[in-house]
């Protein structure tokens, strides 16, 4: 379990050893021990890399969600946004592949498309929330419905896929590639966690995000440009979704109405399990990373054993989430 080695410098008092803030980490270790006892293949590198790779997609989105939630906002549109971005990215690639072929330019266009859609969506969210003065919950609930509907329209209710198999093979290394023996999504996830950790704790932007989440009014008195910070936080979240899209598309080469369904709740759950307060103010990127891995691991442990009936599996996930939240309940 690699972790970004960042000590939060926001604590002005000397940091005390606070067991409760390690709740999710302890939960994850317990879960891994149980998994390894139930099936010795759990600890195999193959399985670990499967779990971490599948964590990466929601995990990267959850990193963005950490900023939004710390700033006191919420983004319910991320699951729909990944579906829309994936659909648009595939359609654009299908259109340009005829002329550009299997070239670096094609890959670049795919990546830029996903980032562009994300950038526009993030700006839209930010402006509607700050300048339009609409609650983030409502804005993103609305755009979530819009994005998914537009994708369904583009797909004519079906599935958008790469028309040329050569496109799939061109993009596949972005998901299935393993430089240094580690799958690309895991490397990207770690890099994103490091960058986000630095951004949150070592930059003025990060401090402002935390300040606004603690007390928006006081932040305004302190001459912080609250609107700008909020807009950029939503842009950062949407760009995180773009990066997840760039990794998601090569996996199956398709997008449909079901793409990313419920991912917003998974991302929010990862953030909260990781110790960020839903009311905002403070939080940890490392916690979010652990929270995401924990969520994916529960499903994996249940899949590689048949201890509990297939009908009750979701209940086990519910129990684990509540237990972990209990372990870290005293954090302020």
């Amino acid at each position: 379990m690699s972790q970004p080695k960042i000590t939060p410098s926001t604590n002005l008092t000397k940091p005390k050893l606070d067991l409760s803030s390690y709740g999710p980490f302890i939960g994850l270790i317990l879960l891994c021990v149980i998994g390894a006892i139930l099936n010795r293949d759990f600890a195999s590198w193959g399985n670990i890399s499967n779990v971490l790779t599948r964590t990466s997609l929601v995990g990267i989105i959850a990193i963005g969600a950490t900023f939004i939630i710390i700033s006191g906002g919420i983004d319910l549109s991320v699951g729909s946004l990944i579906a829309l971005q994936a659909g648009v990215m595939i359609l654009v690639l299908n259109a340009v592949f005829g002329t550009l072929g299997a070239s670096f330019a094609t890959i670049l266009i795919g990546i830029v498309t996903a980032l562009a859609v994300g950038f526009v969506a993030g700006l839209l969210h930010g402006f509607l929330i700050t300048k339009g003065r609409i609650e983030a919950f409502i804005v993103t609930l609305g755009t979530a419905a819009i994005y998914r509907a537009v994708l369904t329209q583009l797909a004519q209710g079906g599935t958008i896929t790469f028309t040329d198999p050569k496109l799939s093979s061109l993009f596949e290394p972005l998901y299935y590639g393993t430089p240094l023996g580690i799958p690309v999504p895991i490397l990207v996830f770690l890099a994103m966690a490091l960058i986000a950790g630095l951004l949150l704790n070592q930059t003025t932007f990060g401090r402002y995000v935390q300040a606004i989440g603690s007390n928006e009014q006081v932040s305004r008195y302190a001459a912080i440009n609250v609107d700008a910070v909020k807009i950029w936080a939503f842009v950062f979240q949407a760009l995180c979704v773009s990066i997840a899209t760039i990794l998601y598309v090569p996996r199956l080469g398709s997008a449909s109405n079901g793409t990313g369904l419920g991912w917003e709740l998974e991302a929010i759950a990862a953030v909260i399990i990781g110790g960020t307060a839903l009311k905002g103010g403070s939080g940890k990127i490392f916690g979010t990373v652990v929270g995401s891995i924990l969520l994916a691991t529960i499903g994996n442990v249940l899949n590689i054993t048949s201890l509990i009936s297939e009908y009750l599996n979701p209940a086990v996930q519910g129990v684990v989430v509540i237990v972990v939240a209990f372990l870290q309940r005293n954090r302020k």
Partner: peptide, 23 residues
């Protein structure tokens, strides 16, 4: 050997099958 829900979608089919293959 076992049966698990994959919810009639591709992503879950991928995930469940990965775990079947591990097991």
């Amino acid at each position: 050997l076992d049966k698990k829900y994959a919810n009639w979608n591709r992503d879950d089919g991928f995930k469940v099958m990965q775990d079947f293959l591990t097991r």
